[in-house]
Nucleic acid binder design. Sequence first.
DNA 1: GACGCGCCTTGACCCAAATCAAATGACAGG
DNA 2: CCTGTCATTTGATTTGGGTCAAGGCGCGTC
Lengths: 245, 245
Amino acid sequence: MQDHSVHVQCSECPIRHRAVCARCESDELTQLEQIKYYRSFQAGQTVIWSGDRMEFVGSVVTGIATLTQTMEDGRRQMVGLLLPSDFVGRPGRSTAAYDVTATTDLVMCCFRKKPFEDLMTTTPHIAQRLLEMTLDELDAAREWMLLLGRKTAREKIASMITIIARREASLQLRKPNGMLTVDLPLTREEMADYLGLTLETVSRQISALKKDGVINLEGNRHINIPDLDRLLEEAGDDSDGGMLN
Amino acid sequence: MQDHSVHVQCSECPIRHRAVCARCESDELTQLEQIKYYRSFQAGQTVIWSGDRMEFVGSVVTGIATLTQTMEDGRRQMVGLLLPSDFVGRPGRSTAAYDVTATTDLVMCCFRKKPFEDLMTTTPHIAQRLLEMTLDELDAAREWMLLLGRKTAREKIASMITIIARREASLQLRKPNGMLTVDLPLTREEMADYLGLTLETVSRQISALKKDGVINLEGNRHINIPDLDRLLEEAGDDSDGGMLN
DNA sequence: GACGCGCCTTGACCCAAATCAAATGACAGG
DNA sequence: CCTGTCATTTGATTTGGGTCAAGGCGCGTC
């Protein structure tokens, strides 16, 4: 289950320039390397349960994880989708606030929490980068609040596809040429938990977008987008695609 | 409209120990005082429009402001409620991402953006505190995502009341003795925008909670809570009241 | 190749909240 | 005191998405 044999060198790390360590100098990386270790999780495995003591923080290296909240009666809402380079955990907090689950096979670069916190106070580059990433996540969360509070089911689906496409593109997971294509990393039920819908509604709306020619499906998970502007229009977003600076 | 005559001394500032400057030493405060100025806004006035160039960042000193997003067709979602000590603006970003509106008369302590950003790189105490505040906001945003995505109208209203009560309590706006009491700082329409509902539904659910004895109304805005546990139960939250550390 | 098991789709029906429409209340100004 | 404005409440009706239920599809296993 755990695998300490890969990526021992930060300099060769695929997320080196996007993760919380992005701004570190080589001497700072050396310090990080001393407190880091890798952990692997299988698809479906829970990384941490909400309320559990957290003895580490860390970054997603490969694979996809989700952050979810669950109510006593079982209603679930996904509050974060973690792609490679995203950060897990909150320095200064001892217990996890959300369930973290691996939706695909997952490799995480973990730092023991206490030494990481110490390093944060001595190494401003880490805190600076973490602030930047947290502000980005806050913006993403607020965009999601608009989706959850005000968008129709069809708009929610279209928005989700564009957001996943955008994030995949920024990670260069997609070949830049050819037709725009997206792999949904989630089951219909997980999408429902993400969008505040039921899995039946997700399925119906995906079918409807397909019937209307907005998307094409190859299998259940693989989508291609013949006309991105059309999809953006269906998402109900401002025409500029939500680009900010 | 603008008033430069109040609170020139940071040491006398009512939000001194909660705002972005909370951790600053007196020499750091001196630096902040050189780049700060106060601005006042009347209830209803817009502080910044989404997309506008931001020449300052700052803290709410007194009063209440809201952060909202608007879709082209007019649908609105509030994505933040700013109480005294809350921070407005994002260092490193040149334009506002949301509309900021004063819902009551408002006084803000503003810092010119560029000097503030410079100060952030030289003064780790500011960046540290901002990170802490941003992480808190992210948690609040995620709690709100659960509300928007999965709660019923009645649960949304009950949750909103408990959250406002909790925030007022943490600011010590309430006398600690006596019956628990909350002043809603928002109109029914603003509550609707906050909760992802229509104003009619907000009104109906408040009436229903009143009829069921969960809350008592004195006028439209003043609520008192005979039994907090009952209200928490109606909110559908975990019984611990969402306390985290 | 038949079975079981996830995952997904589709249909029928229902209900919570939206929409449309009035009426009421609270004030401020003339 | 009357009148206009704005916030709020309440009622009647509609509807988007939830719920319940039945199959379908792909795939690994015996």
